[in-house]
Write a protein that binds this DNA or RNA. Structure first.
Lengths: 137, 137
DNA sequence: TTTCGTGCAAAGCATTTGCAAGTAG
DNA sequence: CTACTTGCAAATGCTTTGCACGAAA
């Protein structure tokens, strides 16, 4: 995959790509760093930043800026939406929502990316809230 | 407006709300600070952060996290989309795109916000690029 | 040998926090 | 009097930059 995009398949890049491909948590740089550092103690955040930027530029990953505080990364570049839980901060995929046609309203702009971001409370956090309420009674 | 939401209409808050209402640039905190500081030399960024957070919480403004680097603010809380030009960084409104129905896919989540973010190159930047190309010939 | 990739350290910004002084109800 | 608001200064956290060393083509 990397070679097809003109990127040298270095050990670090392979591990970062592999990590991203195996995660559904939409990790940020720090999560990737913390986990990979266990196996590769010499890895640096700079390399992770460099690699992720290259992956996004080459279309091998997507940057998800839903939280506004940090960039999260997604290996799945197919059409789908993202949900951010305001309570626990988790970002999850939402499949099956048809993105609207934006070309009609482009008005001379070139639209390269379309992101549908949903924010609210996830099911797990809702269940916890219910539990707390019941406990109070 | 402020009083209706339980916020004291202080001079700073009024000016910030007024500024936001009169701007279509989707300003970030720094833009608001730089402009307001000309008239109100004592205003602080802390107050702007505080006020914007209160406005968003009370539904008098929207936070636009399209760039992933900074939060931009929009006085228009009606349903519309946003476009970020990757070239010049400007954020513009896009009206008329019908947001997809997300309730069907909520799967137990409570969805409180729906944001459609478009990224690409704006018309102005495209025109500049054309100009450069023609100049080369 | 020239370009590319890595990683340390420092710098850069946006944002948050602690806190003291001022203001309004 | 009491709660809210302001704003300075410091701290935090994510990301970028400068740079030197090492590795690959």
């Amino acid at each position: 995959m990397l070679e097809a995009k003109g990127l040298r398949p270095s050990y670090q890049r392979l591990k970062i790509l592999e990590y991203l491909a195996g995660s559904k948590a939409h990790p940020n740089v720090d999560m990737i760093y913390e986990d990979l550092a266990k196996k590769i103690p010499t890895i640096s955040k700079t390399t992770i930043y460099n690699t992720l930027a290259a992956l996004v530029e080459k279309g091998l990953a997507r940057a998800v800026t839903i939280s506004g505080q940090e960039v999260r990364y997604d290996f799945d570049v197919s059409e789908h939406s993202h949900f951010l839980c305001k309570k626990c901060g988790r970002v999850t995929d939402v499949y099956g929502i048809k993105l609207p046609n934006t070309k009609e309203k482009a008005e001379g702009r070139v639209i390269e990316e379309v992101h549908l971001y949903l924010k609210g409370i996830c099911r797990e956090c809702l269940n916890k809230l219910k539990g707390v309420q019941n406990g109070k009674r």
